[in-house]
Measured scan of single mutants.
Amino acid sequence: NQASVVANQLIPINTALTLVMMRAEVVTPMGIPAVDIPRLVSMQVNRAVPLGTTLMPDMVKGYA
């Protein structure tokens, strides 16, 4: 099973992602693959992402 990107903290809307905000976890359903974490750094979320939420492609501006 491939790990997905999960929020390590509450990420407010329009926040630029940093490594500290994300962790890799095997979850269902799968979200953004953990291998993409370096690519996500400095991209912004388009909604508030609660702690423990799996990041989906439509939550990150410019990802999809």
Rank of each mutant, 00 (worst) to 15 (best):
residue 24 A to W: 06
residue 33 P to L: 06
residue 36 D to L: 05
residue 15 T to L: 04
residue 45 V to E: 00
residue 6 V to D: 00
residue 47 R to L: 08
residue 24 A to D: 15
residue 25 E to R: 03
residue 7 A to I: 04
residue 30 M to T: 12
residue 64 A to M: 14
residue 50 P to V: 09
residue 16 A to M: 12
residue 35 V to C: 05
residue 11 I to Y: 01
residue 3 A to R: 03
residue 55 L to Q: 00
residue 28 T to L: 04
residue 27 V to N: 03
residue 59 M to K: 02
residue 22 M to L: 15
residue 34 A to R: 03
residue 17 L to S: 00
residue 54 T to K: 04
residue 60 V to K: 00
residue 56 M to F: 06
residue 7 A to E: 01
residue 35 V to W: 08
residue 41 V to K: 06
residue 35 V to I: 09
residue 27 V to F: 02
residue 35 V to G: 09
residue 45 V to Y: 00
residue 14 N to S: 08
residue 33 P to Y: 10
residue 2 Q to W: 14
residue 45 V to C: 05
residue 56 M to E: 09
residue 51 L to E: 13
residue 33 P to R: 04
residue 56 M to S: 12
residue 63 Y to H: 04
residue 21 M to Q: 04
residue 58 D to A: 09
residue 21 M to E: 02
residue 47 R to E: 14
residue 29 P to F: 13
residue 7 A to H: 01
residue 52 G to V: 02
residue 32 I to L: 10
residue 11 I to P: 00
residue 34 A to Y: 08
residue 7 A to P: 01
residue 43 M to P: 00
residue 20 V to R: 07
residue 61 K to Q: 11
residue 51 L to H: 10
residue 8 N to H: 14
residue 14 N to Q: 08
residue 28 T to V: 09
residue 28 T to C: 15
residue 52 G to D: 11
residue 19 L to S: 05
residue 1 N to I: 15
residue 36 D to Q: 09
residue 36 D to F: 05
residue 31 G to H: 01
residue 4 S to F: 02
residue 55 L to H: 01
residue 58 D to H: 06
residue 42 S to Y: 13
residue 18 T to I: 04
residue 31 G to T: 01
residue 44 Q to T: 14
residue 16 A to K: 04
residue 18 T to K: 05
residue 43 M to T: 06
residue 35 V to M: 11
residue 50 P to R: 10
residue 24 A to H: 10
residue 54 T to M: 04
residue 21 M to A: 04
residue 18 T to S: 09
residue 42 S to E: 09
residue 49 V to L: 09
residue 54 T to Q: 04
residue 38 P to H: 13
residue 15 T to G: 07
residue 38 P to N: 08
residue 44 Q to Y: 14
residue 25 E to C: 04
residue 24 A to I: 14
residue 20 V to W: 13
residue 33 P to Q: 08
residue 63 Y to K: 03
residue 30 M to G: 04
residue 24 A to S: 14
residue 13 I to G: 10
residue 64 A to T: 15
residue 13 I to R: 06
residue 31 G to Y: 02
residue 11 I to G: 01
residue 50 P to Y: 13
residue 13 I to S: 12
residue 28 T to P: 02
residue 10 L to F: 10
residue 2 Q to Y: 15
residue 28 T to S: 14
residue 51 L to F: 13
residue 1 N to R: 03
residue 48 A to H: 13
residue 42 S to I: 03
residue 51 L to I: 14
residue 46 N to M: 12
residue 18 T to A: 07
residue 59 M to Y: 13
residue 45 V to Q: 00
residue 52 G to L: 05
residue 33 P to A: 14
residue 32 I to K: 00
residue 54 T to D: 01
residue 8 N to C: 05
residue 43 M to F: 12
residue 56 M to N: 08
residue 1 N to Q: 15
residue 24 A to G: 12
residue 52 G to I: 02
residue 43 M to A: 12
residue 2 Q to P: 15
residue 15 T to R: 10
residue 17 L to C: 01
residue 51 L to Q: 09
residue 63 Y to S: 03
residue 1 N to G: 15
residue 44 Q to K: 06
residue 30 M to C: 15
residue 14 N to F: 13
residue 5 V to C: 11
residue 64 A to D: 13
residue 43 M to I: 05
residue 40 L to S: 00
residue 43 M to R: 06
residue 52 G to Q: 05
residue 3 A to W: 08
residue 13 I to F: 10
residue 45 V to K: 00
residue 52 G to F: 06
residue 14 N to Y: 11
residue 8 N to I: 07
residue 46 N to C: 05
residue 63 Y to C: 04
residue 11 I to T: 01
residue 37 I to W: 02
residue 57 P to N: 09
residue 56 M to K: 08
residue 63 Y to W: 13
residue 41 V to D: 03
residue 22 M to V: 08
residue 16 A to D: 04
residue 21 M to V: 03
residue 56 M to Y: 12
residue 1 N to M: 15
residue 44 Q to N: 10
residue 28 T to N: 06
residue 41 V to M: 08
residue 19 L to N: 04
residue 1 N to K: 04
residue 33 P to C: 15
residue 60 V to W: 02
residue 36 D to W: 06
residue 38 P to G: 10
residue 63 Y to L: 12
residue 26 V to F: 06
residue 56 M to Q: 14
residue 39 R to I: 10
residue 34 A to C: 07
residue 3 A to V: 08
residue 18 T to Y: 03
residue 46 N to E: 12
residue 36 D to H: 09
residue 39 R to F: 14
residue 63 Y to A: 04
residue 59 M to N: 08
residue 9 Q to M: 11
residue 48 A to C: 13
residue 57 P to M: 09
residue 28 T to H: 06
residue 48 A to Y: 10
residue 1 N to A: 15
residue 41 V to P: 03
residue 49 V to T: 09
residue 32 I to N: 01
residue 33 P to W: 10
residue 5 V to H: 01
residue 51 L to T: 12
residue 29 P to L: 14
residue 37 I to E: 02
residue 28 T to W: 05
residue 53 T to I: 12
residue 51 L to S: 13
residue 60 V to H: 01
residue 41 V to H: 07
residue 38 P to Y: 09
residue 45 V to D: 00
residue 8 N to R: 07
residue 10 L to V: 13
residue 40 L to D: 00
residue 20 V to F: 11
residue 17 L to E: 00
residue 51 L to C: 15
residue 57 P to Y: 14
residue 8 N to G: 14
residue 32 I to E: 00
residue 37 I to R: 05
residue 28 T to A: 10
residue 50 P to L: 09
residue 34 A to Q: 11
residue 18 T to G: 04
residue 31 G to A: 03
residue 38 P to M: 06
residue 49 V to C: 04
residue 6 V to Y: 03
residue 13 I to N: 08
residue 17 L to G: 00
residue 31 G to D: 00
residue 28 T to Q: 14
residue 38 P to I: 05
residue 28 T to G: 05
residue 15 T to I: 07
residue 55 L to F: 10
residue 24 A to Q: 15
residue 30 M to K: 04
residue 56 M to A: 13
residue 47 R to M: 11
residue 37 I to H: 02
residue 31 G to C: 03
residue 58 D to N: 15
residue 7 A to M: 05
residue 18 T to D: 03
residue 28 T to I: 05
residue 22 M to P: 00
residue 38 P to Q: 08
residue 16 A to G: 04
residue 64 A to R: 06
residue 10 L to Y: 08
residue 46 N to V: 14
residue 60 V to M: 06
residue 58 D to C: 15
residue 56 M to I: 13
residue 22 M to S: 00
residue 2 Q to M: 13
residue 29 P to A: 13
residue 45 V to R: 00
residue 35 V to S: 13
residue 13 I to A: 10
residue 48 A to L: 09
residue 27 V to A: 09
residue 47 R to C: 05
residue 23 R to F: 03
residue 40 L to I: 12
residue 34 A to V: 06
residue 19 L to Q: 04
residue 7 A to V: 12
residue 45 V to T: 11
residue 2 Q to I: 13
residue 26 V to I: 10
residue 32 I to S: 01
residue 29 P to N: 14
residue 8 N to E: 09
residue 25 E to I: 03
residue 37 I to L: 13
residue 3 A to Y: 07
residue 25 E to W: 05
residue 13 I to M: 12
residue 9 Q to A: 08
residue 32 I to A: 03
residue 57 P to R: 06
residue 5 V to F: 02
residue 5 V to G: 02
residue 9 Q to G: 06
residue 57 P to W: 12
residue 15 T to V: 11
residue 62 G to F: 07
residue 41 V to G: 03
residue 34 A to W: 11
residue 34 A to M: 05
residue 2 Q to T: 13
residue 13 I to E: 15
residue 12 P to F: 08
residue 15 T to E: 07
residue 48 A to M: 09
residue 23 R to E: 03
residue 61 K to M: 12
residue 46 N to R: 11
residue 2 Q to K: 03
residue 43 M to K: 09
residue 37 I to K: 04
residue 20 V to Q: 08
residue 37 I to D: 00
